[in-house]
Amino acid sequence: MDIIISNSNDSPIYEQIYIQIKNLILNGTLKEGEPLPSMRALAKDLRISVITTKRAYEELERDGFIETVTGKGSFVGSNNLEFIKEEHFKEVEENLSLAVKAAKLCDYSLTQMIEFLTLLYEEN
């Protein structure tokens, strides 16, 4: 599991952890039911405070990505494939609407956008 904390990044550290663990779950690196490191161990390894990791885990739990069992630790949440897809879809939608906004600012037509999107899609 790779987590990279940047001190120069403007977003708070708990958010950096939240996003990275979430991405690891979304892209399947962390599988359903897989145990996560304990909050204290993670804090030690990343050299950050325990309440920072605690906050990240709490937010992950709140959003349904992980489950915490008292005395056992935290695990990647189960049966949330639908939820994950939904999450992905939301992200796509958000980014596309940003693109549309930007396109409208410079009178980029829908056809041109579709062409461009097709190009990008195939490139990847």
């Binding site: 708070p12 550290i13 708990y14 050299r47 950050i48 405070s49 325990v50 309440i51 920072t52 906050r55």
Partner: peptide, 25 residues
């Protein structure tokens, strides 16, 4: 790095005592 909470004392008075993340935020 390490502290969860920070208390700041100045001239014998506590000026602030809060979680480090809140303070830095």
């Amino acid at each position: 790095h390490i502290a969860d909470y920070v208390t700041f004392i100045h001239n014998g008075k506590i000026i602030l005592s809060d979680s480090k993340d809140n303070i830095l935020e």
